[in-house]
Amino acid sequence: MDSQSDKETKNNAMFFLRLVISNWKLLFGIYAIVGILTVIILLVIPKWYKSDATIVILDENKTSLSSLMSEFSSLGLNFAGGGEVATYIEYLHTNKMYDRLNEEFGLAEVYKAEYREDVYEEIFENLIVTDNENKTFTISYIYKEDPEKAAEIVDFLYQELDKIALEVDKAEASNFRTYIENYYRDIQNNLNADEDSLARFQTRTGILDLEAQLGVTISGLAELEKERISLEIERNYVENAFQNPSRINEIESRIKAITDKIEQLKSTQNNTFVALDYIPEQGADFLRLRRDILVGEKVSEFLRLQYEQALLDEQKINSNLYLVDPPSVPEKRYKPQRTRILFIVMFFTVLLSLFYIRADLFYKNNQQALKELL
Results as ranks from 00 to 15, higher is better:
residue 2 D to A: 04
residue 3 S to L: 15
residue 4 Q to T: 13
residue 6 D to Q: 12
residue 6 D to G: 02
residue 8 E to Y: 08
residue 9 T to G: 14
residue 11 N to Y: 08
residue 14 M to F: 01
residue 14 M to A: 10
residue 14 M to R: 07
residue 23 N to A: 02
residue 26 L to G: 10
residue 27 L to G: 14
residue 29 G to W: 00
residue 31 Y to S: 09
residue 31 Y to N: 10
residue 33 I to K: 06
residue 35 G to E: 07
residue 42 L to N: 04
residue 42 L to F: 00
residue 47 K to A: 09
residue 47 K to Y: 13
residue 48 W to F: 12
residue 50 K to R: 12
residue 50 K to A: 07
residue 52 D to T: 05
residue 53 A to S: 11
residue 59 D to K: 14
residue 60 E to L: 15
residue 66 S to C: 15
residue 67 S to L: 09
residue 68 L to S: 15
residue 68 L to C: 08
residue 69 M to Q: 06
residue 70 S to G: 11
residue 72 F to C: 03
residue 74 S to T: 08
residue 78 N to M: 11
residue 85 V to H: 03
residue 86 A to V: 05
residue 87 T to A: 03
residue 89 I to E: 14
residue 92 L to Q: 03
residue 94 T to A: 05
residue 96 K to C: 08
residue 97 M to I: 02
residue 99 D to M: 11
residue 102 N to L: 05
residue 104 E to Y: 11
residue 104 E to F: 06
residue 105 F to V: 11
residue 107 L to G: 02
residue 116 R to S: 12
residue 116 R to F: 14
residue 117 E to P: 05
residue 120 Y to T: 14
residue 123 I to V: 14
residue 124 F to Y: 15
residue 124 F to L: 15
residue 128 I to L: 10
residue 129 V to Y: 00
residue 134 N to H: 06
residue 139 I to Y: 01
residue 139 I to D: 04
residue 140 S to R: 08
residue 141 Y to L: 04
residue 147 P to F: 01
residue 150 A to L: 11
residue 156 F to S: 06
residue 157 L to I: 09
residue 159 Q to G: 06
residue 163 K to M: 04
residue 163 K to A: 13
residue 173 A to K: 00
residue 173 A to H: 01
residue 174 S to C: 00
residue 174 S to K: 15
residue 174 S to M: 05
residue 176 F to Y: 15
residue 179 Y to I: 05
residue 180 I to S: 04
residue 184 Y to R: 12
residue 186 D to V: 07
residue 187 I to G: 01
residue 193 A to Y: 04
residue 193 A to C: 00
residue 197 S to D: 13
residue 198 L to R: 05
residue 201 F to G: 03
residue 205 T to L: 02
residue 207 I to G: 03
residue 209 D to R: 07
residue 210 L to Y: 07
residue 212 A to G: 06
residue 213 Q to V: 01
residue 218 I to H: 09
residue 220 G to S: 15
residue 223 E to G: 10
residue 224 L to W: 04
residue 226 K to Q: 08
residue 229 I to S: 13
residue 232 E to M: 14
residue 234 E to Y: 06
residue 235 R to P: 01
residue 236 N to S: 13
residue 236 N to V: 04
residue 238 V to P: 06
residue 238 V to C: 01
residue 246 S to M: 06
residue 255 I to C: 00
residue 258 I to T: 08
residue 261 K to Q: 14
residue 264 Q to M: 12
residue 264 Q to A: 02
residue 265 L to G: 01
residue 270 N to A: 04
residue 271 N to Q: 14
residue 271 N to H: 02
residue 272 T to I: 15
residue 274 V to T: 08
residue 277 D to L: 12
residue 278 Y to I: 13
residue 279 I to C: 10
residue 279 I to H: 07
residue 285 D to N: 05
residue 285 D to Y: 09
residue 296 G to N: 05
residue 299 V to W: 04
residue 311 L to A: 05
residue 317 I to Y: 01
residue 317 I to T: 03
residue 318 N to V: 10
residue 319 S to H: 12
residue 321 L to C: 05
residue 323 L to T: 03
residue 326 P to K: 02
residue 328 S to L: 12
residue 329 V to T: 09
residue 337 Q to T: 04
residue 337 Q to K: 13
residue 347 F to R: 12
residue 351 L to V: 13
residue 354 L to S: 11
residue 354 L to R: 13
residue 359 A to I: 02
residue 362 F to T: 00
residue 366 N to S: 08
residue 370 L to Q: 06
residue 371 K to I: 07
residue 372 E to V: 08
residue 374 L to W: 04
residue 374 L to C: 04
